[in-house]
Design a protein around this nucleic acid. Structure first.
Length: 296
DNA sequence: GCGTCCAGGTCTACC
DNA sequence: GGTAGACCTGGACGC
């Protein structure tokens, strides 16, 4: 039995720009129906059951459709708040970015919220899946994780696998079934540490943890280097790293360096003025063209 | 059809 | 603390 509930987003929220903020909407178990502008999210409910909620916009409110009876409205709202970053505050960034070329569009469009998964663990694994490979391979590894290892409900809903489930299979499973190559050992080690309670990625959402300590913890995960750590840091609300990767560098060369390569230091200097917001500044500057012809 | 390169990098070994 | 070389996969490209 379907249920519909509503959620009031903050005034500076744009559903469209949040969903399309980066490639995450394209990774399983997210499903995005572009024509209907509806995002389906899947997470593990409090009773341990995988549950699906679809989210769309309706007259300025967020309309949540719940498909499982077991999930409470409170829990569904909390997950959506987390995934769409409804409680994040961007006033400081908008103040810095207002009127600036490359960024003013974001202020006007209310962009800046980077879509995230229901858990930090899921975002961490997905981020490792983005390293040193094409986006196609990232998508393939993630959908293999969900299809072959995900948590299944009776009605066909599948959520991203839990640390415990991921820890229960060995490296050869990842190599052969997930096709994750040398990352396979990283997944086994990470999943075991989280399942054993030795590491708690969800704790990284705590804004009180000093950035240096947080970065140290994240980079202690095998397979997570500077790019992956800074990317995950953005997803837990810390934007002081640029998270440079081949895509971002190429876009910077194109937009700000006449198509010629330059050092990372030059890129760093370009965004220095944005201080603790620089990671968001480069991302929005580099993705401006995604939204140029799509007035929303 | 086969070799090489490289994508939303990171680790290890050795200066 | 800085940097070659190795590392899975699969699609693109040159020959």
């Amino acid at each position: 039995v379907k249920r519909t509930i509503y959620l009031n987003p903050p005034a500076d929220f744009s559903f469209y720009h949040t969903v399309n903020s980066h490639g995450w909407y394209d990774l399983s178990p997210f499903e995005f129906d572009e024509a209907k502008c509806t995002l389906s999210i899947t997470f593990i409910s409090d009773n341990g059951a995988p549950t699906k909620v679809s989210v769309s916009e309706s007259e300025g409110r967020l309309k949540l459709t719940l498909f499982e009876e077991s999930v409470s409205a409170v829990r569904a709202k909390a997950s959506v708040r987390h995934i769409l970053r409804l409680d994040d505050d961007f006033a400081g960034f908008y103040e810095l970015a207002s009127g600036l070329k490359g960024l003013n569009w974001a202020v006007k469009a209310k962009a800046g919220r980077l879509l995230r998964s229901p858990t930090v663990f899921e975002d961490l694994v997905k981020t490792i899946c983005t390293t040193n490979c094409s986006w196609n391979l990232t998508r393939s590894m993630v959908s293999n994780l969900v299809e072959k290892l995900g948590e299944r409900a009776g009605d066909g809903v599948i959520a991203f696998p839990t640390p415990g489930t991921m820890a229960a299979v060995d490296e050869s499973f990842y190599r052969e079934e997930i096709r994750s190559g040398y990352r396979s050992g990283y997944f086994v080690e990470l999943a075991r540490k989280v399942a054993d309670g030795e590491l708690d990625p969800e704790n990284w959402l705590d804004p009180e943890i000093p950035i240096a300590e947080l970065r140290r913890q994240i980079m202690s995960v095998k397979g997570v280097g500077l790019y992956a750590a800074e990317n995950l840091l953005k997803l837990v609300g810390r934007y002081d790293g640029l998270a440079l990767d081949s895509w971002l560098r190429a876009r910077f060369y194109e937009k700000h360096n006449r198509g010629r390569k330059c050092t990372d230091l030059k890129i760093e200097k370009h965004y220095q003025r944005f201080g603790e917001w620089r990671g968001l500044a480069i991302w929005l500057d580099m993705t401006e063209s995604w939204f140029e012809s799509k007035a929303q």
